[in-house]
Computed example of a mutant assay.
Amino acid sequence: MTLRLPNAMFFKLLVASGMMLVMAIIMLMFSDRASAHGYVESPGSRAYLCKLGQNENCGSIVWEPQSLEAPKGFPQAGPADGQIASAAGKFPELDEQYATRWSKVPMTAGMRAFTWKFTAPHATTNWKYYITKQNWDRNAPLSRNSFDLTPFCTENYGGKRPPFSYTNTCNVPYRTGYQVILAVWEIHDTGNAFYNVIDVDFGGNLDSQVPTVPSDLSATEVAATSVSLAWNASNDNVGVTNYKIYNGSELIGTVSGSTLSYSVIGLNSNTSYTFTVRAEDAVGNISDTSQAVTVSM
């Protein structure tokens, strides 16, 4: 019996077809990740208002407001100071910052909806929202010092994929005048997140004086599973209404403005905890964070 082998042309066609098949598979595998981008559509982010023409001289972001992607982990990681609005400098025009540079979206304190538009959904860890301090420097590039670094809103999503439009409902803190909200969409299965800044105007010029920072925070009593904290009073032009106590970035308790101590219970042995305190007045002005006290159980 004679066995005939395919000719050279057949081999070439076979190899070429195989390569095209492999390339098609690779494109299918990565197309979702490459197009998995998004932006804040409402209230309109700085980049989205560029796309709409409400912001001018924005550079190439007008074609791709969904592409503000940078390493995740803000504020410990993520875009460098001065490059927060541009997602690490990719769209440098967005980092231009002075009081009259950008269009502002009207904003009021209280429960507000933030809607993301996704060009393709992506596995999501969470969304976080930060807001500038009341008296931030509106004429300096955005930095971590511009923001209250405790997010006022966090929605965890557990690695699921959201629909093409998704809304977070957040309790926006009280502010007056021009402020910036930083919205962060953290991706679950990559090292990146998407950063959108939203220029907002709260209007008015009511009480804007922030309470002074609570001082001399200390751990007065440490037991097996509890610790007592104490601090000195803050000052405010109207008056401090409450103090907020944090373990790391987590709010764990609130006491009245006349109370200068707090007991933390239910702690774990062989564990370190870092506590801070902030003061708040009647209209929602919140002080900077006190110095931290670390306790090892």
Rank of each mutant, 00 (worst) to 15 (best):
P65S: 02
G82Y: 08
P75D: 12
G59K: 03
S103I: 07
K104T: 15
A88Q: 15
I84Y: 06
K51T: 12
A88I: 03
Y98W: 15
Q54F: 11
K104Y: 13
F74V: 07
V105D: 07
L68W: 01
A85E: 10
G53M: 12
E93P: 03
I61Y: 02
K104L: 15
F74N: 07
A99Y: 09
T108I: 14
Y48L: 03
P106M: 05
A88D: 15
T100W: 00
E96Q: 13
P92Q: 07
Y98L: 03
P71C: 02
F91C: 05
L68Q: 01
K90Y: 05
N57W: 02
N55V: 00
P75L: 08
G73I: 07
G82I: 13
Y98E: 03
A80L: 12
E96R: 15
Q54K: 13
W102M: 04
L68F: 02
S103T: 14
G78M: 03
F74P: 05
E56F: 00
Q97F: 08
P92N: 10
I61P: 02
K104S: 14
S60A: 10
A70G: 11
A88K: 06
V105L: 08
R101L: 02
P92C: 08
Q76H: 11
G53N: 11
R101Y: 01
G59E: 04
F91V: 07
A85V: 03
E69C: 04
P75F: 06
D95P: 13
S103P: 02
W63K: 12
P106V: 02
G73E: 12
E96L: 11
E64C: 10
K51R: 15
G59N: 03
I61R: 01
C58A: 03
P106L: 04
A80P: 02
P79E: 10
K90G: 12
N55K: 01
E96N: 11
A87L: 06
P106T: 04
Q66P: 00
G53V: 13
S60F: 09
D81W: 08
P92E: 13
A85I: 02
S60P: 06
Y48Q: 06
F91T: 05
A47S: 13
K104V: 13
D95F: 13
S103M: 14
A85K: 09
K51H: 13
R101A: 01
A70T: 07
R101W: 00
E93G: 04
S103K: 12
V105G: 03
A88W: 08
G89T: 11
T100K: 00
A80N: 11
T100L: 00
A87F: 05
F91W: 13
S86Q: 05
A87M: 05
L52C: 07
P79A: 06
Q97D: 09
P92I: 09
Q66G: 11
P79I: 05
S60R: 08
F91G: 07
E96C: 04
V105R: 14
L52P: 02
P65W: 01
A77I: 05
E64K: 04
I61E: 01
C58Q: 01
T108W: 01
P92H: 10
G78R: 07
T108F: 03
A77W: 08
P75M: 06
N55C: 00
A70K: 10
F91P: 08
P75K: 10
G89N: 11
M107S: 02
K104H: 09
